[in-house]
């Protein structure tokens, strides 16, 4: 007698793509080629990874640093660059208080340094550029969403894409100069003259759901757990189906 598993509840958010287990298993050398400051707390690190197999917007990688005694520290980071940036990847990292990996990047790293990466990882938060995408992020949670925005632009895609991004202030809005008409920033501490200050609210989300494209939105939420809880509740309250909300929480 053989049984197969038949879920009693509706299956949660399926993965978007098949992932390569081979790519995920191999560590590759990534050479730092450029550092760009984004905000007082965040910078973008550009790497040459000649054998990078490519990724989809929204995927992440694992990065490893090795000390002389063989001690290693590894972290998951979302990829900021779009797949079109062949042979290169960019990561945008906050300088975490006491962070041993982000601390090295912000205090020590310079072009020419080598680190190791494996990936891309996880097909769950990936956006292949097919379905209309409603992106909601806060702080450095905008990083994987920016890969989607850049991919959308690089390909000249006509599928609708909107980005709601929360930051404490205009100075702390990562990628501020790159945003276009697709993006609505929300400022929680200080804002330019005439722009309201406050937390992301139903008033930001409801109009986007009221004007849904055909087939509805695929929602991608990224940020701290507190933000992800808040934003996903706003989406549910506005009528977004739970099985079309993908959440990447930064831990």
């Amino acid at each position: 007698m053989t049984e197969t598993f038949a879920p009693v509840t509706r299956f949660a958010v399926p993965g978007r793509i098949a992932v390569s287990s081979r790519a995920a298993a191999e560590w590759q050398t990534a050479t730092l080629t450029e550092v760009r400051r984004e905000t007082p707390y965040a910078a973008t690190f550009r790497f040459a990874v000649p054998a990078w197999q490519g990724h989809l917007p929204g995927q992440h990688l694992m990065l490893r640093l090795t000390a002389e005694d063989g001690y290693t520290a590894q972290r998951h980071y979302s990829i900021a660059s779009p797949p079109e940036d062949s042979g290169h990847i960019e990561l945008t990292l906050d300088h975490v208080e006491g962070g041993e990996v982000s601390g090295w990047f912000h205090s020590v790293a310079r072009p020419g340094d080598e680190v190791e990466v494996r990936g891309p990882l996880s097909g769950f938060f990936a956006w292949p550029g097919d379905r209309p995408a409603l992106l909601i992020g806060a702080g450095s949670g905008v990083v994987p969403l920016m890969s989607m925005v850049r991919h959308h632009r690089a390909r000249g895609l006509s599928v609708p894409l909107r980005l709601l991004v929360s930051a404490r202030s205009p100075e702390e809005l990562i990628y501020a100069r790159e945003f276009g008409a697709e993006t609505t920033p929300v400022f929680t501490r200080s804002a330019p003259q005439g722009v309201p200050v406050g937390r992301m609210a139903a008033a930001h989300v409801a109009p986007l759901l009221a004007a849904q494209p055909e087939g509805g939105w695929e929602a991608y939420v990224c940020g701290s757990n507190a933000f992800a809880e808040h934003a996903s509740r706003l989406l549910v309250q506005a009528g977004q189906p739970v099985d079309r909300i993908r959440i990447e929480r930064f831990g």
């Binding site: 050398t29 640093l65 090795t66 000390a67 002389e68 001690y71 290693t72 520290a73 041993e100 090295w104 020590v108 790293a109 340094d113 080598e114 680190v115 190791e116």
Partner: peptide
């Protein structure tokens, strides 16, 4: 592959 300047 030792990372330059990384102590951990």
């Amino acid at each position: 592959n030792v990372t330059r300047g990384f102590d951990g």
